[in-house]
Each structure stands twice: as structure tokens, then as C-alpha cells.
Amino acid sequence: MERLGNGASERHAKIILDSYNRLLGKPLVDSEGAGGTSEAELLFEAPIVVLSHGTQADPVLNFGNRAALGLWEMDWDAFTQIESRHTAEPMIQAERQRFLEAVEKQGYIDDYNGIRISSSGRRFRIEQAVVWNLHDEDGNYYGQAATFKNYTFVQEGES
């Protein structure tokens, strides 16, 4: 597993998983029958796309599971050095405002759709993504995470 398994990564995985469970009232990944598998490994190997970014003014991605790395066609080092806005096409201002207000109001949104761009320029539409705020064990804001399982590759000019 890439760059996971140390204390910070285990903590980060726990924050992602706990924040999701607290806000949405259900687990993000199924740990049933996982045995001694760590939360970080479960999250990294999950069959859904999971990614997160930090709290910087221009947030930088700080986690992507195997599915995210594959979809964006990046390795861990490249993925965790990119500003999250560079993975997407610019949002229409009204759509962005609705999105931000919904996440602010309830801590998450569970119906986000948008166009993303891989490192090679492949465009894909994500559908029914969940985006949620992350808070650490002390309640401090820790960034945001997103997950989705539905996406479709799109041709140039499609949206």
C-alpha cells in the first residue's frame, strides 16, 4: 500500500471514516469480515473512489485511494501535491454557490455531479458524489473529502 500505515495515515483514515459516519449515519466502507485489516488499508482498497484535501486557502489533495489514483492517472506523490481545483473544470458560479451553501448548512452534500479531468486530460463526469466536511477527534475542521462510485468518460465538447 502506498504511503499508508503510519500513524498520520491511520489517523487521517479514521477522520475520513468517522466524519462520514457521523454526518451520514452510515459507514463509508464495509469493515465486516476485515479481520486485522487497518482502517487506512480498508479505505485505500475500497471499491469506491475516495479523496480528500486539507484546509489551505487553495486546498491541496492529501489522500486518494487506489480507485482515485487510477481514475486520475497519478501516483500517490503526484496526487498529493496538486491543488484540488486542478482536478476539475471550473464550476458555474450559481452551481458553486449552491454547492458551498449545502455543505456549509448540513456538513455534506450527497448529490454532486461534475466534470473532472485526469492527468492525461481524460474528462469524466462524476455522478451522485458525496462531499463532506472533515473534523478531527477534537472537533477541529480538518478539510473536505469526497466519494463516488458512478462516473462516465466524456468526449471533448460534451458536458
Rank of each mutant, 00 (worst) to 15 (best):
Q128M: 09
R85M: 05
E10Y: 00
A68P: 03
I15E: 11
I15Q: 08
W132A: 13
D110W: 02
I48S: 02
N133C: 10
G5Y: 04
L71D: 01
A46P: 01
T55M: 03
R123E: 08
V131S: 04
R66L: 13
S31H: 08
A94F: 00
I115N: 14
R96S: 02
G121M: 13
G114Q: 15
P90Y: 08
R11E: 15
D58Y: 06
A146K: 01
N62S: 08
D77S: 08
L71W: 02
A34Y: 01
E156T: 11
Y112V: 12
F79Q: 08
L23C: 11
Q106T: 10
G139W: 13
N62D: 14
G70N: 14
L69R: 08
N113M: 00
S118T: 14
G35M: 10
F79W: 02
F44Q: 03
Q106C: 02
E32V: 00
F79M: 15
G107V: 00
Y141W: 15
S9Y: 02
A40L: 06
Y108N: 03
K14M: 05
G114C: 11
R98G: 04
Y142E: 14
E10A: 05
D75Q: 01
V49S: 06
N21Q: 14
Y151W: 06
E32K: 14
I92S: 03
E95M: 05
R11G: 05
F63D: 04
S19F: 05
R125T: 10
L61M: 15
R85I: 10
F148C: 07
L69V: 07
F124C: 11
G7L: 11
L51T: 13
Y20P: 02
G70Y: 00
L23H: 05
M74I: 06
F153L: 05
G121I: 14
N65E: 01
Q106S: 08
M74N: 06
F124R: 12
A40E: 12
E39M: 12
Q155T: 10
Y141D: 07
G25M: 09
K149L: 00
V50R: 07
N6F: 10
V49H: 09
I115D: 14
S31Q: 09
T37N: 02
A34H: 06
E137C: 06
A88S: 12
V131C: 11
G143M: 13
R22M: 08
A68R: 01
G114S: 15
S52L: 07
N62T: 11
E41V: 11
H135T: 15
D77W: 04
A46H: 07
L28D: 04
R125Y: 03
V103T: 04
L23N: 10
G33Q: 07
I126Y: 03
L43S: 07
R125A: 11
H86Q: 11
F99I: 00
G157A: 13
W76C: 05
E158Q: 15
V154L: 09
N6L: 06
E156A: 14
W72P: 01
R3W: 00
R96K: 13
I82Y: 05
Y151V: 01
